[in-house]
């Protein structure tokens, strides 16, 4: 297993080189010259030339690409071009509110979805199954924005149960601020999660071993919890863990509407101001997270299914 982990970690190198190449090409060939945006509406031609020099945009493309690669492997992203803030500090400070919002909501959403999926799988084809499926489809059909506007207006403004917007650092200060967006996050996640988990569980329910278990006289509930759920875990683990990088990168709409100073807003600002170092840092960070979590998923498979061997 150690060898496998080392090999998978080594895959990081070509993947990061590829990510660097793609963001470098996109920035240099598609985005164009950032100096006019960075200097504001009164930028002069001379200033733009000076700034290009200072930002290293006059270096050869190869040199610029190696600068990107260097920062990817050293994790030293320098300072933001637009805010002049240190990027590592921006990310650390932004990751906290993003995670305060998304992580608890994600855990609750996953647990709820799994429970609901088991229930509807248990009662498959019956009224409750149909009702929940309709709810799920209706849930995913409504725009996230509609939920946000509705919940913020009624539960925060009209009933005054929650804060309308804002954020405070530190536990438990942040709870009143993330409670409502967290609930919206859960509701938004339930639709797709329940449908996916239900499908996976139903796939297992029709397997031979379920029939055998029934023949042996095990109860449906016991079969569902002890056998079906365990065998359905591999696709569920994959689905759940792959979502984790997105949690860290924040939930942009929720962050914007609830004024949570998370990473979603930082990324959007960077895109709107051609702030290449921040865009680069966020792209590299998400790639590394994605790879590490894929590896973690593979390791979890061995626990979920002893037949899986990592070679």
């Amino acid at each position: 297993m150690i060898k496998y982990i080392i090999r998978r970690l080594l895959y990081l190198i070509p993947v990061l080189l590829g990510v660097c190449f793609i963001i470098f090409i996109l920035f240099n060939l598609v985005a164009g010259d950032p100096t006019a945006v960075l200097l504001g509406k009164n930028a002069t031609a001379a200033q733009m030339i000076e700034l290009r020099e200072q930002l290293g945009l006059n270096k050869t493309l190869t040199e610029q690409y190696f600068d990107v690669v260097k920062s990817a492997f050293t994790f030293n992203f320098g300072h933001s071009w637009s805010t002049k803030q240190e990027i590592s500090q921006m990310i650390l400070r932004g990751a906290y509110p993003s995670l305060c919002l998304t992580l608890p909501a994600f855990i609750v959403a996953t647990i709820f979805s799994l429970i609901i999926a088991l229930v509807v799988a248990f009662y498959r084809g019956k009224g409750i199954d149909l009702f929940i499926r309709i709810l799920c489809i209706a849930g995913v059909s409504i725009s996230a924005l509609a939920y946000i506007l509705f919940f913020q207006y009624f539960f925060a403004f009209k009933f005054g149960w929650f804060e309308i917007s804002g954020f405070e650092y530190g536990f438990p200060n942040f709870i009143p601020f993330v409670a409502l967006p967290g609930i919206i996050f859960i509701i938004l996640s339930l639709g797709p999660d329940v449908r996916f988990f239900r499908t996976v569980i139903l796939d297992e329910i029709y397997q031979d071993y379920v029939r055998t278990a029934r023949a042996k006289g095990l109860s449906d509930l016991s079969i569902l919890l002890k056998h079906v759920l365990r065998n359905a875990l591999i696709p569920i683990i994959t689905y759940v863990i792959i979502q984790v990088p997105y949690l860290i990168l924040g939930a942009l709409l929720l962050e914007n509407f609830f004024s949570i100073p998370g990473l979603g807003g930082i990324t959007l600002n960077a895109l709107n101001s051609s702030d290449f170092p921040v865009i680069k840092a966020m792209a590299i960070l998400s790639s590394v997270l994605y790879i590490l979590l894929s590896l973690f998923t593979d390791i979890l498979y061995t626990f979920a299914d002893p037949r899986v061997k990592l070679k």
Binding site: I175, I183, N269
Partner: peptide, 28 residues
């Protein structure tokens, strides 16, 4: 989650403070 129901902060009269809005993030 439910503990925080009804916990939205009330207006304060202890200090002479004013509350304003910035519609854009401040960079520094």
């Amino acid at each position: 989650t439910f503990l925080v129901f009804g916990c939205s902060k009330e207006n304060s009269f202890d200090e002479r403070e004013i509350n304003l809005i910035s519609p854009e993030k401040i960079s520094g």
